Simulated assay, not measured.
Amino acid sequence: MKNEPTPLLAQPLALPSLGRAALYVGLFVLGAVVGAAGALVQSAWFPLGLLLALAGEVGLCFGGALAARGRAGAVAPAAGWMLAVILLTTSRPEGDFVFASDGGSYIFLLGGMAAAVMCATLAPTRQPDGGQVRLGK
């Protein structure tokens, strides 16, 4: 019997290192900041503010994926963005609110979620090394 490598799904789950965990927490906080800033900018300068807010989220999510070299780097800022935006959608007892009930707010909410999913899907992942990684060899 040859000494074959253990399949990826059969390997035990490893916790991230302290530096990688700090990176994920930092990306989460940055995602919350970008979500709050985007909520304010998207309605202030309607067409360009909306594009700026969505471009900021895409840049942060894809940059986080590149920095972490994996999908978790895109998921961490997306989770922070989502938490901040969901908390900002609630109205206060005085009647104050951040999001108006117009099309731009819905495009920001749904477009931001779609952009986060796309960044997590297109994130670069680690590829296996060695000669036995292709089928038929």
Rank of each mutant, 00 (worst) to 15 (best):
F62K: 07
M82N: 00
F62S: 08
N3A: 10
Q42V: 06
A36Q: 04
G95H: 11
A74T: 04
G131C: 05
Y106K: 05
L54S: 03
P77F: 06
A44W: 14
F28N: 00
A53V: 06
A10D: 15
L30Y: 01
L66S: 04
A116M: 05
G111C: 09
A14K: 15
L109M: 09
G95F: 13
T125G: 08
L122R: 10
G130K: 13
A67Q: 08
L15Q: 06
P77W: 07
R69P: 00
A72Q: 10
G31Y: 01
K2D: 12
I107S: 03
A116E: 00
R20D: 15
L8D: 05
P128C: 01
Q11W: 00
V133Y: 02
P124R: 13
P16M: 07
V33H: 00
P12Y: 08
G95Y: 11
G70D: 04
G56M: 03
L8T: 10
A78H: 05
W81P: 00
L15D: 03
F46W: 09
A116S: 15
C119Q: 05
K137T: 11
V29A: 10
A79K: 01
L18G: 01
E57K: 07
S43I: 05
W81N: 00
L8A: 09
A55T: 15
G136V: 02
L9E: 05
L66W: 09
G64N: 02
T125E: 14
M118N: 00
A114F: 09
A14C: 08
P7Q: 06
L87W: 08
K137A: 06
A55C: 13
P5Q: 05
V85I: 14
V75Y: 03
A123C: 05
G64M: 06
Y24M: 11
F46G: 02
A65H: 03
G95V: 14
P128T: 04
G131Q: 13
F62V: 04
V75G: 00
Y106F: 14
R92D: 15
F28A: 08
M82E: 00
L18A: 10
G103R: 12
S105I: 13
S105R: 10
T89I: 08
R92K: 01
V58M: 08
N3T: 11
K2W: 09
A22W: 09
A100K: 14
V75M: 09
R69E: 14
A53P: 04
L52M: 14
A67F: 03
M82T: 15
I107F: 09
P124T: 04
S101W: 13
G136H: 06
G130M: 12
V33R: 00
L8C: 00
L9F: 12
P47A: 10
L51E: 01
A72I: 14
L8E: 09
D96W: 14
F46M: 11
R92Q: 07
F97G: 13
A67W: 13
W45H: 12
P7S: 12
R134V: 06
A74V: 06
A14T: 14
